[in-house]
């Protein structure tokens, strides 16, 4: 039972982790905490729903169209909404993302209505069943898919940021934009790329979670909040921080939900996180100094 809950926690946690990753990448490179992040992903889920369920297009193709759309939204938001106030007021950028949240919620309502739309799992085969002395663990195939895709994305991201010239250039911009320019790095392009990556990750997270949550305007609210919390827990700094933050929140939440109270699982998880922040305000893996802010 405990193992089953921990496995379930890892699956949910892996979703929190990539949402946190997407937030952190955009934040590190451009200094903006994107409060519309989940809602940007939600729009992609609706795009998928439109192509797959309404038009009847192939699952995989619709999936990639939706992710490309997420990438485009990421690009457009950074370039058109945030760039103009970038050097004027960092606080404005945050509030613009809050405005964007309202707009996206309204747009979804306007176009697709308030109904919960269903999206089928990609994999519906028999669940993986592990038997051992203490009991059995059942993992549905869709959850294995989530775990696999998330792991692949994280590995790809680590390789990109650590091994490619462009990835290193992006990290350079995150550390010091001005010095990066002196190297000949087009920091403006890197900022766009960071939001394109962030936008596609957000879309991916929404598509992975959609079969469970259904598609509706606020579908990503809890994922967004938990993603934020995971990022904060990880110190809003690093990839490992986001992963550890996400997985631990996923596990805490599932255990609390099972053994304490289903209704209050978010509250309890948040309380634990606030407690951690009181002891260590810079997060679990964050460093005391803050470069952006």
């Amino acid at each position: 039972m405990v193992f089953q809950q921990i496995i379930a926690g890892i699956i949910t946690g892996s979703l929190y982790a990539i949402v946190a990753l997407g937030l952190v990448i955009a934040y590190k490179v451009t200094g903006v905490m994107n409060f519309a992040y989940g809602y940007m992903g939600m729009i992609s889920a609706y795009i998928f729903f439109t192509f797959f369920s309404m038009i009847g297009m192939n699952y995989i193709l619709s999936f990639f169209i939706a992710i490309a759309f997420g990438a485009f939204v990421g690009y457009a938001v950074e370039r058109r909404l945030l760039r103009p106030v970038r050097n004027i007021s960092p606080a404005s950028m945050v509030i613009i993302t809050l405005g964007l949240l309202l707009v996206l919620e309204g747009v979804a309502l306007q176009i697709w209505g308030n109904n919960y739309q269903q999206i089928p799992n990609l994999l519906n085969g028999l669940p993986l069943i592990l038997r051992f002395e203490g009991g059995i663990i059942v993992i549905p195939q869709q959850n294995l898919l989530i775990l696999g895709v998330v792991t692949a994305v994280i590995i790809a991201l680590i390789l990109y940021l650590n091994l490619t010239f462009q990835g290193k250039a992006m990290r350079a911009v995150a550390q010091n934009e001005e010095i990066a320019k002196l190297m000949g790095i087009n920091s403006s392009l890197m900022m766009s790329i960071s939001w394109i990556i962030s936008g596609s990750i957000g879309a991916l997270a929404a598509l992975l979670v959609a079969p469970q949550t259904f598609v509706y305007p606020d579908m990503m609210l809890s994922l967004q909040i938990m993603g934020f919390t995971a990022a904060v827990l990880g110190g809003f700094e690093s990839i490992p921080g986001s992963i550890i933050g996400g997985i631990s929140i996923g596990i805490i939440e599932n255990l609390v939900g099972t053994y304490i109270s289903t209704n209050l699982k978010t509250t309890f998880s948040l309380a634990i996180i606030v407690a951690i922040l009181i002891v260590k305000p810079e997060g679990l893996l964050g460093s005391a100094k803050s470069r952006r802010v």
Binding site: F165, K168, A169, R171, A172, Q175, N176, E178, I179, A180, L182, M183, G184, I185
Partner: peptide, 26 residues
């Protein structure tokens, strides 16, 4: 035309070799 910035504007969270590689970005 390359500027070597003051106060050693290096990238502290990147390795020495990665710093050098970024110098060769162009």
């Amino acid at each position: 035309l390359t500027l070597c910035p003051e106060r050693r504007g290096i990238f502290p969270d990147l390795s020495v070799e990665d710093n050098l590689l970024l110098g060769a970005y162009t």
